Simulated scan of single mutants.
Amino acid sequence: MRITNLLILLWIALVPAAASAQPIEEKRVSFAAGTSGATIRASLKGDQITDYLLGASAGQTMTIDFASSNPAGYFNLMIGSDPAAIHIGSTAGGHFNGVLPGSGDYRIRVYLMRSAARRGETTDYTLTVSIGGKATTPTPAAPDYADGLSGGPDWWQVTGVSAGDTLNVRAGPGTKNPVVGQLANGHRVRNMGCQMNGQTKWCQIEFPGDQPLVGWTAGRYLHEAAAPPTQAPASHEARGSVPCAQAAGQPMGSCPFRVARGSGGTASVWITLPGGGERYLDFRDGQLVGSDPGKSVSHTRNADLNMILVDGAERYEIPDAVLYGG
């Protein structure tokens, strides 16, 4: 009888939480005839999320301005249903202006940070978006997977990775080599040649950026692609800064970072160190699972902050928004 009562109480406790979950509301944006933009005024409460969808073409320029009455209100910009954000408002601010890397639907996601959403806070916001410029027409080319050991295209695109997962980049051609980074579907990397290791074809790649990632990955996940747009230094890569300190007792400063995300808290974060180089942090389901080879790391949480300690001295505070994109 006591077990039955406990189950009933547990069910009662869980029902409100399940009922409070808010689906993402999608709204299609259209521009009035003769115009190239639109202004939207609306509001959100708690964990409500609104996605504004609008079509655009590669080579066009999109400009977004966002103002929120609540400082916890932000927007992210994504391509279609890809969870990797081009722009993360919580770290990059309420303005975006850039040349679009692909054609199709773009998704502007408006939301409240998790801490504010849990408190049931509200926000009134104004979202202004415009699209201009001419679309570019890509030169058609036959698909080419990494099926050769020499030559091949100048650029690969990562494809075929399971949803929510990332592709390991290793220090050498084989799974026994340490992981030096990770990539998500859609990332474009430079082809530096392939070789066999047993029955598996491994390709050396370079992921461009201020601190390029160079390593080896399985060729079956690489597909021929055009070079990434020169206006966007790295496809689907988000950037910002996080609080950091390099020694025990040192006051927190600010370190630039870049992040490549899968979904559901799967993310690879590279933090630029003040003395040069980068610190690599690997997350799965929001949990730290790895760092640079030979480093001792620990992970604790404080509200929406992930508190990372490396070798008992380096400290980093990484918001959930960096890992989840909002």
Rank of each mutant, 00 (worst) to 15 (best):
S162G: 14
T122M: 09
T91Q: 15
Q157M: 15
P138S: 08
A117F: 06
H95W: 00
T159Q: 11
R119N: 13
D154G: 15
L167D: 05
L112R: 01
T126Q: 13
A142P: 03
G93L: 07
L127C: 07
D105L: 14
V110A: 09
D165L: 04
T126L: 09
A116P: 04
N168C: 04
L112W: 01
G102W: 10
A117W: 05
G132Q: 04
G151M: 06
M113T: 13
T122R: 14
S130F: 02
G132V: 06
G151S: 12
D144C: 06
G160A: 10
V129L: 14
W155L: 10
G148D: 11
G164S: 08
P153M: 03
R118D: 10
D144A: 15
G164H: 04
D154F: 04
V158Y: 07
T166Y: 04
D144T: 13
G104T: 09
G120L: 06
R119K: 15
G152V: 05
L149Y: 05
G120Y: 12
G132R: 05
T137A: 12
A135G: 14
G148V: 13
A163P: 02
G120I: 04
R118G: 12
V110D: 03
T91N: 07
V110S: 07
G102H: 10
S150M: 08
V161I: 14
L112G: 03
N97P: 02
H95G: 00
Y145L: 11
G152Y: 02
P140G: 00
R107E: 00
A135F: 09
W156I: 04
A146H: 00
G160Q: 11
A141G: 07
P138V: 02
G94I: 04
G98M: 06
A117Q: 08
A117H: 03
L149N: 13
L167I: 05
Q157G: 12
L149W: 02
Y111D: 05
A135S: 15
Y111L: 04
V158A: 09
S115F: 00
T128C: 06
D144N: 08
G164M: 08
D105P: 00
R119Y: 01
T159D: 13
T123W: 04
T137I: 05
T128I: 08
P101S: 01
A163G: 10
I131F: 10
W155G: 10
L167E: 05
A117Y: 06
P140W: 01
G104N: 03
E121K: 01
I131R: 02
T139P: 01
Y111K: 03
V110K: 04
G94Q: 06
M113D: 13
G151V: 01
L112F: 03
T126K: 13
D144V: 07
A142S: 11
A141P: 06
R118N: 14
L127R: 07
W155D: 11
A116I: 01
T126N: 07
S115V: 08
L127S: 01
D165A: 08
R107S: 13
A146L: 05
I131M: 10
I131L: 13
V161H: 00
G132C: 01
N97K: 14
D147V: 12
T136C: 00
E121H: 01
R119H: 03
P101R: 14
A141T: 12
F96L: 11
S103N: 09
G152A: 02
A142D: 10
S103F: 13
A116V: 04
L100Y: 08
G102R: 15
W155I: 03
T91G: 02
T122E: 14
A163L: 00
